Amino acid sequence: MKSKPPLLLVIVAILYLAYLAWMLVVDFTPVVAGRLAISALLFFFVFRGSRIAGNILAILCALSALVLLVAAVATFSTVALGAVLFTVIAGLLAAFAAYLFFSPAVRVFQGKVPQAPAP
Rank of each mutant, 00 (worst) to 15 (best):
V10A: 05
L24K: 03
A40D: 09
L9M: 15
G49V: 11
Y19Q: 13
G49M: 07
V26I: 14
F47W: 12
P30R: 01
W22C: 05
I11V: 15
A18R: 07
A33Y: 08
R48Q: 13
M23Q: 10
L17G: 00
M23F: 02
M23K: 15
Y16S: 13
D27I: 01
S50R: 05
V12F: 07
I52T: 15
L36H: 03
A13G: 12
P6A: 04
V32S: 10
F28I: 03
R35I: 04
A21Q: 12
L42S: 12
F47H: 12
V12T: 13
L36W: 02
M23Y: 02
M23C: 07
L41P: 02
A40F: 12
Y16M: 06
L15N: 13
I11T: 08
D27S: 14
I14P: 00
L17R: 11
L8V: 09
S39M: 06
L7W: 02
V12P: 01
L17N: 06
Y19D: 06
A37N: 02
M23S: 05
R51D: 05
S39T: 15
S39D: 12
V25G: 00
L7N: 11
Y16D: 13
G49T: 14
R48S: 10
P30M: 06
F28S: 08
I11P: 02
V10I: 15
M23L: 10
I38D: 04
F43G: 06
L41E: 00
P6D: 08
R48V: 11
L41F: 08
G34H: 06
G49Y: 07
L9A: 11
F43T: 02
F45R: 09
V31N: 11
V26T: 14
A40C: 09
L24R: 11
V32P: 05
L41N: 00
I38L: 14
V26N: 01
T29H: 12
F43A: 02
V12E: 13
V46C: 05
A21N: 04
T29G: 03
R51C: 03
D27M: 07
A18K: 10
S39I: 03
F45L: 12
V12M: 05
L20C: 10
R51Q: 07
F44G: 03
V31I: 15
A13P: 00
G49K: 11
V31C: 00
A21Y: 09
F43P: 03
I14G: 00
S50W: 05
L15C: 05
Y16V: 12
F28D: 00
L24T: 07
A33D: 07
A21D: 05
T29A: 04
A37I: 14
Y16H: 14
R35L: 12
L9H: 10
A13N: 02
V31G: 08
Y19I: 03
G34T: 12
V26P: 00
L17H: 10
V26Q: 01
R35W: 07
V46P: 01
S39V: 04
L36I: 03
V31E: 11
S50I: 08
L17Q: 04
V26C: 01
L20V: 04
W22R: 13
I52Q: 12
W22L: 14
T29S: 15
F47G: 06
A13E: 07
L8P: 09
L42K: 08
I14S: 02
A18E: 09
A37W: 00
F28P: 13
L9Y: 09
I14E: 09
Y16L: 06
S50C: 08
A21K: 04
V31P: 09
